[in-house]
Simulated assay, not measured.
Amino acid sequence: MATWGDLAAYVRDQYDVIAQEDDEIRILFTFDHLDEEDERTQVIILVREVLDRKHEWVQIATPMGLASAVDLKALLEEIGHSSIACGAAIMGEHVVLRHSLPLQTLDIHEFTDPLALVAGTADTLEEQFFGGDNY
């Protein structure tokens, strides 16, 4: 990968795109499960960011729930114990997990592996702290 355009083309080819703008793509990440009744998904937002007006990055973010509806201290402690590929933030009214990667030298596995980790971590935390699969 070298540019946002390259990554966007790959994402459109490989994932279920549910919305797209110039610098943002939303996908529905579906987890592989043996039981079709337990199909879980996670909305992932990919955003092009530019550092110092010259270095392109991609931010991988996913909402888990409303910040007002969770014990933030307990959630952050759990993220500190269980997460290796993301950090938590409040964006708008939502608690999100996010991870950022530079695009210039990005290998596809440096994108797909963190994407899967962020999605899986968020799905687990969403169930544990928000009681469902709403995002």
Rank of each mutant, 00 (worst) to 15 (best):
I45C: 12
Q128C: 05
P63N: 09
A19T: 06
Q20E: 14
S82T: 01
I90R: 05
A2R: 13
W4R: 02
W4T: 01
G132S: 02
A69N: 08
E39A: 06
Y15D: 03
E77H: 08
D22F: 09
G92K: 04
K54P: 09
R48S: 01
E36T: 08
T3Q: 02
F130Q: 03
Q14V: 13
M91A: 12
Q20A: 02
R26W: 15
V17F: 02
D6K: 08
E93Q: 10
L103R: 07
E39W: 00
W57E: 10
M1P: 12
L28I: 01
V70S: 03
I60V: 08
E77V: 03
H81D: 10
V17C: 05
A88E: 00
A88T: 03
Y135H: 14
E49R: 13
A74W: 00
F29I: 00
M91L: 14
T30K: 01
G92L: 05
K73V: 01
D32R: 10
D35N: 05
L106W: 11
F129Y: 03
E127W: 10
F29L: 03
D133T: 12
D123A: 13
E36K: 08
D6Q: 12
E36H: 02
D35F: 01
D6W: 02
F111D: 14
G92C: 03
D113N: 15
R26I: 07
E126I: 04
A74P: 12
V17H: 04
E78N: 00
L117A: 10
S68A: 10
V11I: 13
R53M: 14
L117M: 06
D107C: 10
A88G: 05
Y135L: 13
S100C: 11
A119E: 11
G80W: 02
L34R: 07
A9E: 09
T112K: 11
W4G: 03
V58N: 11
V58F: 11
V17W: 07
E49W: 10
L28M: 08
R12M: 09
Q20N: 03
C86G: 12
E93S: 08
C86I: 06
V47W: 03
A122G: 06
A85P: 01
L125V: 00
Q59A: 14
G87I: 02
A74G: 06
H109L: 13
P114F: 12
A119V: 03
E39M: 07
A119M: 11
T121Y: 07
D52W: 04
D38L: 11
R40G: 15
F31W: 05
Q59G: 15
P63S: 04
L51M: 12
R53Y: 13
F31S: 08
V58W: 04
